[in-house]
Design a protein around this nucleic acid. Sequence first.
DNA 1: CTGAAAGCGCTTACAG
DNA 2: CTGAAAGCGCTTACAG
Lengths: 339, 339
Amino acid sequence: MNIRELALRSGVSTATVSRALNDRAEVSEATRDRIRRLASELGYAPNEPARTLVRRRSDTIGLVWDTGYETLGFQHPFLQGLLSAVRNALSEADYHLMLLTTSGPGDADTTYLQAVRRHNLEGVVVLGTPADNRALRALAASDVPCSGIDVALSGPRTVRVTSDNAAGAAAAVEHLYAQGHRRIATVTGPLYLPPAAERLAGFRQACARLGLDVPPEYVVTGDFFLNSGQDAVRTLLATEQPPTAVFAAGDQMAIGALHAAADAGLSVPGDLAIVGFDDIDAASLVRPALTTVAQDQRALGSAAVKALRGLLDADPAEPAEPWIVPTRLVVRASSRPGA
Amino acid sequence: MNIRELALRSGVSTATVSRALNDRAEVSEATRDRIRRLASELGYAPNEPARTLVRRRSDTIGLVWDTGYETLGFQHPFLQGLLSAVRNALSEADYHLMLLTTSGPGDADTTYLQAVRRHNLEGVVVLGTPADNRALRALAASDVPCSGIDVALSGPRTVRVTSDNAAGAAAAVEHLYAQGHRRIATVTGPLYLPPAAERLAGFRQACARLGLDVPPEYVVTGDFFLNSGQDAVRTLLATEQPPTAVFAAGDQMAIGALHAAADAGLSVPGDLAIVGFDDIDAASLVRPALTTVAQDQRALGSAAVKALRGLLDADPAEPAEPWIVPTRLVVRASSRPGA
DNA sequence: CTGAAAGCGCTTACAG
DNA sequence: CTGAAAGCGCTTACAG
């Protein structure tokens, strides 16, 4: 069933069918309704490749989801929910979604860009990928609109979407302060990563605002993985004036902190309160359940899509402002004295 | 840059360019090499929609990833890794991947099927979706080849890919037996789900083989979520002859079991050994770290792709055999006495 | 081994 | 408001 058959059956030309189906103003209401009814009766579905060919646009967005082959390094703890959110936001905006890959470990040079050209993709959303790969750099440097969630893409038509890391960290500190804590330490992520740096900045600002002293030994650098959190808290507990609360800039590190506290015979939150960041699945599974700064995956996904659409309409000359998405503090047992 | 320009620059016809780029036998080696070199110099990328239009095939596979809008119910604990695996396997086989959605909560009738027709998709991989939705049923019932990972699709050209649940459960029992346990209980998933039923069957078979008695109260039905595991173990510990080991058919339930043991003042694995299934992230984050039957996500992904390709070539009349992927027991502290 | 031509299924000026 | 015609960028019999 193609448009010609449908035209024959409706007794009009293919041009009229096309106009009816695409809701063009020129077609009379009666004809339009008749054709549409017939189309859905016959189960007619327009051939998208043909439409793309002639319209020179595909209504399709590409998705870069990780660095291809075997990079385990830094992975978003919640890529899954993020992907759903992006998918939903995109389909609400009537876009299709194509998953992009670099074909293999080696030749990953302009593969993303090639895919974009080949399929007439209108833009790309980049999720939780280390930005240091050639294919991605080439893509960002091109004129293809790219929206990166927690990825700082550098290029003429790129935009970054991120949680409000600073405000989230500050909320964690304020919460601990409200519980009576005055000696609050932090375990950071690798500071060359923007989210890690921003969370630390938010931590410092909040402490300053509240008049809390942050001795240098209260800031320990981790790597977002469990062991680094455990080591960091071990170190913190060995200081002369150990903290009574720790803000870990990622949930895995916070869980490591939980383990270190247990190893030291400390009760959480009684002897040491702990707050994480992200709200990964494990945060609500461990014991005590982890208080954490939750990222709003759905909002991130829809912001990424909105940001991308902004890019599509915008003047390419003007750099796009980053989109900052609010976080939400989820208080659980690891910081709640009453628990 | 399109094929006409490239043809002009190479001094041959578009037909010859097409043949060279598609590696047809009729073209002379010299011409082919010259054209290919020029193409990559000029950064020529063929227009896929145009190719799809004329070839009537898109080299693209669709992916159904969940039931669209807001179904939280049963979610694969590791959809993320699975998706990467499918993506990699597909791109190795030179297929592109399109993410499919039902447009919204209501009108999800033939949306998947429509998308397949519109985009000329050659098949669909279905991941961790409750199969009880109309769009998916319509898709499975059609002549579109569908490969479901842990989803039993019913239709003429469908195939199921799944972990070897029975063998995995049996391996868990054998491991516990080898540690000296003779009173082993299980917490199952909802038994209308094939994986849950198969894990229980494997558990029973292994017990029978080893001559272990399984009193009825040693089989408790859960729902794959944490609380049900916790409740189940509470119940088990209240029996006259409490088990010394528990096999939980999912990691979340196993973590719940850990909590129940802790609540009862029991040490794990000393007083109660616990083994889970899946190897979700949290399994290695909790304490004691969880012994579990790991599903091989990469193998599942590539099996899904192979199964789908098998379907593409196969005689539609013959029902496809399910693909069964081996699991791997990951021994951690929750069952290792020495730990 | 190569080229001229037809055609894949649509959309969109252009003319009426 | 509608139709005839051109054309989007490719591939593939067909002829040579």
